[in-house]
């Protein structure tokens, strides 16, 4: 038996919705955020509408049952039911959306807030637009020295950073569980791989309290490393972060 077009369209929508939930929530075990899923479904619905109505024949088949429901005298009963149930359904939906709950309001964290033009740390003012890692040049000039610097950076990391950011730099250090927001995962392509070293220098030296307002509420537990590390140590640890993860900092030259 051929499934009616309207039912097909509904099945497609339900199927896609179920598919998203199944794939993300069950199979991959990484829930799909409802805000995102709603938008996804809106556009899936738009796409479905397009496919089912771009030609007359198909549109006819979609519209006919709806038209019949509204106009056909023989369907009075079902019409009355639908006309009662549908408003109730939307009413309920709206109520569910709007009713006050104990859920804390959504918090949005901008992971990479825009850096200031200059930052004042270590008693000096650094221009973040032109600041470069003084040790980066050794990568080409003197690889041995560079390796040494990376090792020193690694030592700094192990002594200071790994408790939260993890010994694999994946943000899963021993203390990570206790923190919200969780420590940054440097292995993720969306973090240090997207940034310049000056940006890291800024974030490390001024820590959570140094975040601009747009990245707040800053519950970030990142210490102000300016108070604990030297400038040199920060630059070395930055070398280490990139070296270990295999990423390169975003560079000035757009080659």
């Amino acid at each position: 038996m051929k499934i009616p077009r309207l039912l097909q369209a509904v099945l497609v929508l339900v199927g896609v919705y179920g598919g998203f939930v199944l794939v993300f929530d069950v199979i991959l075990e990484q829930v799909i955020p409802s805000s995102l899923l709603n938008m996804y479904m809106f556009f899936v619905a738009a796409g479905t509408y397009m496919v089912f109505t771009f030609n007359e024949e198909s549109t006819e088949q979609i519209v006919a049952p709806i038209k019949a429901l509204v106009e056909d005298p023989s369907r009075k009963k079902i019409r009355n039911v639908v006309f009662v149930v549908l408003p109730l359904f939307f009413g309920l939906f709206t109520y569910q959306q709007m009713k006050p709950s104990f859920e804390a309001p959504l918090e949005l964290r901008t992971i990479h807030p825009a850096p200031p033009a200059a930052v004042k740390v270590f008693g000096k003012r650094y221009n973040l637009l032109t600041l470069v890692n003084p040790y980066r040049k050794f990568e080409k000039e003197d690889p041995e020295k560079f390796d040494e610097l990376v090792n020193e950076g690694g030592a700094v990391y192990i002594k200071n950073c790994q408790y939260c950011h993890g010994d694999k730099l994946d943000g899963k250090g021993p203390y990570a569980q206790g923190l919200n927001p969780v420590p940054l995962n440097f292995q993720d392509v969306g973090t240090i791989a997207q940034l310049q070293e000056a940006y890291l220098f800024w974030r490390i030296s001024t820590g959570g309290p140094g975040l601009p307002k747009e990245a707040t509420p800053w519950l970030s537990a990142m210490p102000v490393w300016e108070d604990f590390l030297t400038e040199d140590e920060i630059w070395k640890v930055i070398l280490f972060l990139y070296d270990y993860t295999g990423y390169s900092p975003r560079s000035w030259e757009h080659e």
Partner: peptide, 14 residues
Amino acid sequence: VLSNEELKALGGPY
């Protein structure tokens, strides 16, 4: 944009 529940389920904003 994550609700607190989703945040918990994911273990973080990533």
